[in-house]
């Protein structure tokens, strides 16, 4: 029994498609950025901001909002695309990404961008920040939830495991983390660079509730959060199997576009693949 009805899934997929267009366009315009890891996290971010999270684009600092920490800060173009679609700032502003004077810095910054909840970019730090927010919610007896999205390469960072230990020790069941498991980091496959497997048993042994989903399936993403909410006393790690570059065939599974933008010609191809050439929706 699906959690979402068909039209809701269709609506989310349409938004995600537009976000993907924003990602390739804004990084192309900037001449740099990280489209690959942005595209792999797009569906998770879209489902969170358009179905799961309680937030108010007209009041970005609403104290009772659900928070999101993009620990893999280099996926900023995806976060910005989703925030713009949600109404935090004009969609046109996305084309200022990485430019001098822009509110859209290369990596998310809480002081400049409406809707951004934490400054990230130096990998391995976001989970601690999210855990601190979840702890504050517990202290204040507030019901808001804290979401985080980690990259798979980040699991090589020691601080992630410090935060993992802390979060289960403090029973942070209001902390729900997605692992964007796209299998690739800048120097190659995570398993070749420095193996992070077995992931499930690692998180289980650190006291986490662990789920595994298809990270491009809207229904599975939303459903996994509902399943996480049923668990008390434990944080949840949702291992979302994704494809780097998802939605743009020549970027899919490609290392080349981890940290490189499409050139103008490649942008044409990308937009065509995303259905933008035919007028989109």
């Amino acid at each position: 029994m699906p959690t979402l009805n068909g039209s809701k899934v269709e609506e989310l997929e349409k938004i995600a498609r537009r976000v993907r267009v924003h990602i390739v366009r804004s990084t192309n315009e900037a001449g740099s950025g990280h489209p690959g890891g942005s595209l792999s996290a797009t569906d998770i971010l879209t489902a969170l901001y358009f179905e799961v999270m309680d937030h108010k684009p007209e009041e970005p600092n609403w104290p009772k909002r659900d928070r999101l920490v993009l620990s893999k800060g280099h996926a900023a173009p995806a976060l910005y695309g989703v925030l713009a679609e949600a109404g935090y700032f004009p969609v046109e502003e996305l084309m200022t990404l990485r430019k001098l004077g822009s509110r859209l810095q290369g990596h998310p910054h809480v002081k400049t961008t409406p809707g951004v909840d934490a400054s990230t970019g130096s990998l391995g730090q976001g989970l601690s920040v999210a855990a601190g927010m979840a702890l504050a919610a517990k202290l204040n007896r507030e019901p808001y939830r804290v979401f985080a999205i980690c990259g798979d390469g980040e699991l090589q960072s020691g601080q992630i495991w410090e935060a993992a230990m802390f979060s289960s020790h403090n029973n942070l069941d209001n902390l729900i983390v997605f692992l964007d498991r796209n299998n690739l980091q800048i120097d190659g496959s995570t398993e070749k660079v420095n193996s992070i497997e077995p992931i499930i048993s690692k998180w289980n042994s650190f006291g986490w509730h662990v789920l595994e989903i298809e990270g491009h399936d809207m229904d599975e993403i939303v459903d996994s959060v509902e399943r996480a909410e049923e668990v008390h006393g434990q944080p949840t790690m949702i291992i979302a199997h994704t494809v780097k570059g998802k939605g743009v065939p020549f970027m899919e599974g490609s290392l080349a576009f981890h940290g490189k933008a499409a050139n103008d010609k490649q942008l044409e191809t990308a937009l065509e693949a995303l259905g933008e050439k035919n007028g989109g929706d």
């Binding site: 809480v110 934490a118 601690s128 855990a131 927010m133 979840a134 504050a136 204040n140 410090e162």
Partner: peptide, 14 residues
Amino acid sequence: QNMTGIAAGLALSG
């Protein structure tokens, strides 16, 4: 390192 991040999350929450 975690302590410093936890401090950040708490401070971001008032």
